[in-house]
Design a protein around this nucleic acid. Structure first.
Ligand SMILES: [Mn+2]
Ligand SMILES: [Mn+2]
Ligand SMILES: [Zn+2]
Ligand SMILES: [Zn+2]
Lengths: 142, 142
DNA sequence: CCAATATCAAGAATTATTCCAATTATTATT
DNA sequence: AATAATAATTGGAATAATTCTTGATATTGG
């Protein structure tokens, strides 16, 4: 079943349209889940959570919504090795540290004033559209 | 058919054992291919090339060999988004720039003296075991 | 209201990679 | 050298994340 966008509950503060993307009920709930659970969930994680609110949503729709949100620059897709893609609503430039002990993924910011592209020997004429920084290691709690 | 390691042709300069890994004929040919074709081939690319020399090699073996070489730090596995894994024999610390126009992947070095981990706000206690830097964009030739 | 377009749902299809079982090769032991 | 134990290879089956397809439903604009 497709939910009418006009039946959106009152407690949502997500606009009806973001940068040209129609915010359907499904897209809103997918986006809300990412905003509430900032632990870089997979499509399936999102699917399970969104089902609490939209019991009839399909996994394909979650994938469609995530892709639409990524395409419009509202969220970011994050990949570790060959694992399932994860999704992140943090739009500030940041990298990801994957703690192998706990599985937790930490957002990593640059120190102030650092611009990665300045530190690389890029080939002349290179126009960078996207940068991904991935760190793998352990977080010692001792 | 399994090739006897003793029947290795004379023009190979790869040692019989590298850091504890038995260099079988299959592993030698996989490694040789990576050294000769520095364009970050996929497992299937390697498979097709190696078949010229070992017509009976299987794709599973190519995957096995690549994994063994990666595990022993002899080559690196490189991932772009959700595409097939690619493999790189360049062991110096470097990143990868994926030119979307041509599909070519360029090795990217840091400018001298740059150490990425120094520029990031890592959580206290983080021990980094691996860093991956991936750039996507276009190489203007004009 | 109507037509055109967009979105959704369910399940099938795709595909890179891994797994499995049988065979062959290598190494260690007698 | 023969034998036993271990490791590697092969071909095909299995896996699993993602994408595709198709029919239904919703939205938009006239
Ligand atoms: Mn639940
Ligand atoms: Mn060929
Ligand atoms: Zn993030
Ligand atoms: Zn490389």
């Amino acid at each position: 079943m497709v939910y009418k966008t006009s039946e959106v509950p009152a407690d949502i503060e997500i606009p009806e349209e973001i940068s040209g993307l129609r915010m359907t009920r499904q897209r809103q709930e997918v986006y809300r889940t990412l905003m509430q659970e900032r632990n870089h969930p997979t499509a399936n994680d999102v699917f399970m959570r969104v089902k609490d609110r939209l019991p009839n949503i399909s996994l394909a729709t979650v994938y469609n919504c995530l892709e639409a949100l990524v395409q419009h620059g509202i969220i970011r897709q994050v990949n570790f090795e060959r694992e399932s893609s994860r999704y992140c609503p943090n739009l500030s430039e940041h990298g990801h540290f994957h703690d192998e002990t706990t599985g937790v993924i930490h957002d990593i910011d640059f120190k102030p004033g650092v611009h990665l592209a300045d530190l690389l020997n890029l080939p002349p004429g290179a126009v960078i559209e996207d940068v991904e920084i991935t760190l793998r290691g352990k977080l010692l709690t001792a």
